[in-house]
């Protein structure tokens, strides 16, 4: 059952996505893409995934805009008077065909949410272990946090190392750009 809020939000996200694809000026695309990010964050919030919505808020509203602008500084913008990109008809036909195929596969998806056969429910011993022992084992109140930072601590540590390496690499690259331009 689709609520009015979802329906309007869906229309908004669709409009922002299409505009992002069609606008000609890159600076305008960056701005409109921020609006798309706002819509997606609302979707995540409405579907009760506050952590994903928080990430989308931080990345979409802050980091993406800044990174894209930093990239734009290094490039040259073509100045012409058209507001919208001209549509490539063959590409549009291919895209339409792909869309039809993807929508056709939608109905074949297994009913994952709330299904009694989902792995989380078909192995109650495993799920129950975490629910019962997470606090005693790790001393963390939130069971999800306990799994992420306790039971899967090394995995999360590895992810943190990857993110740290990516951050350092970006700083090195940006630093070099500044260094050569001066």
């Amino acid at each position: 059952m689709i609520t009015p809020f979802e329906a309007v939000l869906f229309a908004f996200v669709l409009a922002t996505a299409i505009t992002t694809a069609l606008l000609r000026d890159v600076l305008s695309v960056i701005v409109v893409f921020a609006a798309y990010s706002l819509g997606m964050a609302l979707f995540y919030a409405f579907l009760l995934a506050p952590d994903v919505a928080m990430t989308e808020a931080a990345i979409g509203a802050g980091v993406t805009t800044l990174l894209l602008l930093l990239t734009l500084v290094q490039t040259v913008r073509e100045d012409d008077n058209r507001t919208f990109e001209q549509l490539n008809i063959p590409a549009l036909v291919v895209f339409g065909a792909l869309l039809v195929v993807l929508v056709a596969t939608l109905t074949e998806f297994p009913e994952a949410v709330g299904s009694a056969d989902a792995p989380a429910w078909s192995n109650p011993a495993v799920t129950q272990y975490y629910i019962e022992n997470a606090f005693a084992d790790t001393g963390v109140m939130n069971a999800v946090t306990a799994v992420l930072a306790g039971y899967r601590g090394f995995d999360t540590f590895g992810e943190a190392v990857v993110v740290f390496a990516a951050g350092v690499s970006i700083l090195i690259v940006l630093g070099r750009e500044v260094f050569t331009s001066e």
Binding site: V8, A11, F12, T16, T19, V32, A35, L42
Partner: peptide
């Protein structure tokens, strides 16, 4: 939902 409708009206200016 009404505020969302308003958002679409605002987005007209962005387009």
């Amino acid at each position: 939902a009404l505020f969302m409708l308003l958002a679409i009206a605002m987005f007209y200016r962005a387009i």
